[in-house]
């Protein structure tokens, strides 16, 4: 891809590498994702998809290479610093605040974005914007009826929806979802896909996903990660017909779908 003048891509990765001890998990990834794009990262198990996510979002520091968010270098920054710059993520294994109510989960996700920081002089109950914002999110993720339950008692699908709600609440413009439909039934998957479409409108979406129906339905572009390297990036139909991808991964994955 040639560099074009204009705004920098929402997310740009160059020469990214990550080793754990002697094992090199990410072996030189280059990727550029434009603002507003829906981008899926697919690949066989153990290809390093989750590690790539963890590097981008600051969970691990990269061994080398650069990660730029809207042109600003974020490699090696802490998760909270990256989040403050407008990037938010969900987790493959549900990662919520189990002892807090559903409403409280969402409201906490709004606090930093609404500028409250480490305030001990505001009362959260008294902020109309905060509470209406949280109610809005609950509406969007269909959990209004569950608002006062501890998040830990929700069903799996509801927790996944809450996970997405927490991720989008802060208004980040780059959303990263790690296997949002993992472990879901067909109807639950449809529900989550609709939800993702709705809540990521006008935002940049990066997701790891195993369900090829979801990937080809949602993504504008797809990258295929195999053994820590991206072997192909392109529009869904390009990727589908790419012989290298067929050989390495997709042939098997598509067959498994049928």
């Amino acid at each position: 891809m040639t560099a074009t003048p204009g705004p920098p891509p929402a997310l740009e990765i160059a020469g990214l590498k990550k080793s754990f001890g002697k094992a090199e998990i990410i072996r030189g990834v280059d990727l550029s994702i434009g603002a507003g794009e829906r981008h899926a990262v697919i690949g066989p198990n153990g290809a390093g998809k989750s590690t790539l996510f963890n590097l981008i979002t600051g969970r691990f520091p990269p061994s080398s290479g650069a990660i730029r968010l809207h042109g600003h270098d974020i490699s090696g920054k802490a998760p909270f610093e990256i989040n403050r710059m407008g990037l938010s993520r969900s987790f493959q294994i549900t990662n919520i605040f189990p002892r807090m109510t559903v409403f409280e989960n969402v409201r906490c996700s709004l606090l930093w974005a609404q500028g409250y920081r480490y305030s001990f002089w505001h009362m959260v109950n008294r902020s109309r914007d905060l509470n209406e914002g949280a109610e809005d999110i609950l509406e969007q993720i269909n959990l209004t009826e569950r608002r006062d339950l501890p998040a830990g008692v929700l069903s799996y699908a509801e927790q996944r929806a809450l996970e997405i709600g927490i991720t989008i609440a802060g208004g980040a413009n780059v959303i990263m979802l790690d296997e949002p439909t993992a472990g879901m039934s067909h109807s639950e998957t449809d529900y989550i896909v609709n939800l993702i479409e709705k809540v990521t409108e006008n935002k940049t979406l990066v997701m790891v996903e195993h369900d090829m129906g979801v990937v080809f339905g949602l993504a504008d572009r797809i990258s295929v990660l195999v053994y820590g390297e991206i072997i192909a990036t392109g529009r869904p139909e390009e990727v589908r017909s790419n012989p290298k991808v067929q050989e390495a991964y997709l042939g098997a994955a598509l067959e498994a779908e049928h």
Binding site: N83, R84, E104, C108, L111, W112, H122
Partner: peptide, 22 residues
């Protein structure tokens, strides 16, 4: 009942997730 007090609960429940909220 303040933002910091609420986030203390969040950090108690799940410190890692709190970091991804800023």
């Amino acid at each position: 009942r303040t933002p910091i007090g609420r986030m203390a609960n969040a950090v108690r429940d799940n410190p890692e997730r709190a970091e991804f909220l800023g």
